[in-house]
């Protein structure tokens, strides 16, 4: 392990680090939005839209991100749709992540107990009020474990962006290895960089999970 090599590569890695963070953030926020909308459509059984989104969720969940990206980046231009690699990456990640998030939220909504629904109904709530005051707050708490798992998953999935040459962390490392043939050093920095991102995220999510578990199941 040669520390000067590591030192010299740090500026590159910092760039990649920032890009990974940024892409993850956009991807996660986008996925949560798509996921909530999708799961609400499924919960309220909005006709037609529900069937369409069911197909979306199954297709997105059961195909690899890599192929989704190849399609967006290499095949779409043949059909006249050209996008930058970063745009493709974000669209792909949100396409995939939205479906995972939708599954998580739907699981949470369905996890709200029949007793709670009965109690709300007995108080004269209509379907909308039931959703707004009982299902949503409790269902979202129940879906926090899935949300946490998805967030970690999506951050790690950004590493696949390296196949369409987005200069995020993994791509940065691969480029450097290709140029200087020093794999130990660069892979070491790469792993450390992911640890720096993911350890705080994991700790934060664990804390959040403990908090809402207490709130949601304390009845």
């Amino acid at each position: 392990m040669d520390w000067t090599i590591i030192q010299q590569s740090l500026p590159n890695f910092v760039q990649g680090f920032k890009l990974t963070l940024w892409l993850s953030l956009v991807g996660i926020v986008g996925s949560i939005i798509v996921g909530i909308i999708t799961s609400l459509v499924q919960y309220f059984r909005v006709p037609v839209l529900k069937q369409i989104l069911n197909v979306y969720v199954e297709v997105a969940r059961n195909t690899p991100l890599l192929i989704q990206l190849f399609f967006l980046y290499y095949a779409f231009p043949v059909m006249g749709i050209k996008m930058t690699a970063e745009t493709c990456g974000i669209i792909g990640l949100i396409f995939l992540g939205g479906a995972y998030m939708a599954e998580g939220f739907t699981g949470g909504f369905n996890g709200v107990s029949q007793n709670q629904l009965d109690a709300g109904e007995a108080l004269g709530m209509n379907q909308f009020q039931l959703a707004r005051y009982v299902v949503l707050p409790q269902g979202l708490s129940l879906s926090v474990p899935a949300l946490a798992a998805n967030i970690i998953f999506l951050i790690k999935e950004t590493s696949i962006f390296s196949v369409i040459a987005i200069p995020e962390l993994t791509n940065t490392a691969l480029d450097l290895i290709g140029m200087y043939y020093r794999s130990n050093e660069y892979l070491f920095v790469l792993v450390v960089a992911y640890a720096i991102i993911l350890i705080p995220v994991i700790l934060l999510l664990d804390w959040l999970e403990r908090r809402v578990r207490y709130g949601a199941f304390g009845n």
Binding site: I160, S183, N184
Partner: peptide, 20 residues
């Protein structure tokens, strides 16, 4: 394994086993 993406795992094995 929770922290390291699978792509990176593949490269770890791919580069480190033969070279190291």
């Amino acid at each position: 394994f929770r922290i390291v993406p699978t792509v990176v795992l593949l490269f770890l094995v791919y580069y480190i086993l033969p070279r190291q």
